[in-house]
């Protein structure tokens, strides 16, 4: 039993970490600027394609990971400065629609540039194969992803709680006017915040490309579970996103094992149940970034 359950648990944690990291990115942007970033999936896909482009020009996977993530972040900053920043003073509907339009443009552009079918995104050979832990055999790449995502989340927490910039970000979420009055350039904060969200999406996107296959709609397939993660975890809560993501990942993969037919819908059932019991989501009342 444990031999079958263990891979599913690992799988659940991997999926859950993906959902969590995407959800955290969404959450950061939502909390500070009220923007539901429907282009978040496009940033993931973009990062995947950029990594693919770097690798097909001879770059190693790790170079591609770093390079593509940074490039994507630069694109993210440009998008924020050029488009989204103009809408902060309007109701959030407009940034929602703007990012919706951008995601349509992005998806079709990917198709025109890299083709409509998936591209052969190859994970380095030393990350393929399996690793045995006792009599439990686990795919190496998934273990790597798990490790990488844990590092990313830890780094993010350290950034938010141990740096001045992180402190300002948290402050701005609580009370932007006060932050501005105290001499912080909140405008820059918004951009930094957006960049961090996009960076998280990019890292997730590159790892996901090796796991899910890379094609123009890849990112969008992770976007919906990430929204559900935010709802379940509670809007405004970072911890909520992490717990929500893992909860969904584990529930989905364990359901896959015992009741495959229900594995897609179980996420929504979970959401409905959580909302009935705690209308603000699991950590919705614990305060922002709590």
């Amino acid at each position: 039993m444990i031999e079958r359950l263990a891979p599913e648990v690992v799988n659940g944690i991997v999926l859950g970490s993906f959902y969590a990291i995407v959800a955290i990115g969404l959450s950061l942007i939502m909390n500070l600027t009220g923007t539901i970033n429907l282009a978040h999936g496009s940033f993931m896909t973009l990062a995947g394609y950029l990594a693919f482009a770097i690798m097909s020009r001879g770059g190693s996977f790790w170079v591609a990971l770093g390079g593509a993530a940074l490039l994507t972040m630069v694109v993210g900053v440009a998008v924020e400065r050029l488009f989204i920043a103009r809408l902060y003073k309007r109701i959030p509907l407009y940034s929602l629609l703007l990012t919706f339009g951008l995601s349509l443009i992005a998806e079709e552009s990917f198709r025109l540039i890299w083709g409509p079918s998936s591209v052969p995104f190859a994970v380095p050979t030393n990350l393929q194969g399996s690793t045995a832990l006792g009599n439990i055999v686990l795919p190496t790449y998934r273990l790597v992803i798990m490790g990488a995502l844990v590092i990313v989340i830890t780094a993010l927490l350290l950034f938010l709680y141990r740096t001045r910039l992180g402190l300002r970000l948290r402050g701005a979420v609580q009370d932007p006017d006060m932050m501005a009055a105290l001499g912080t350039n909140t405008r820059v904060l918004y951009t930094v915040n957006f960049a961090v969200g996009v960076l998280l999406a990019a890292i997730a996107g590159i790892f996901a490309a090796g796991l899910l296959g890379l094609q123009p709609t890849m990112g969008n397939s992770l976007l919906m579970p990430a929204f559900i993660t935010v709802v379940i975890g509670g809007m405004g809560s970072l911890i909520g996103s992490i717990v929500g993501g893992l909860l969904i990942g584990l529930t989905v993969s364990i359901t896959t094992l015992y009741l495959p037919a229900a594995s897609e819908i179980v996420m929504y059932v979970l959401m409905a149940v959580v909302l009935l019991v705690r209308p603000r989501g699991l950590f919705g009342e614990a305060g922002i970034f709590g």
Partner: peptide
């Protein structure tokens, strides 16, 4: 689809 997306963006802005 790019044109439609651009129309959305233009309308919003």
């Amino acid at each position: 689809q790019i044109a439609i997306g651009a129309l959305f963006v233009a309308c919003v802005l």
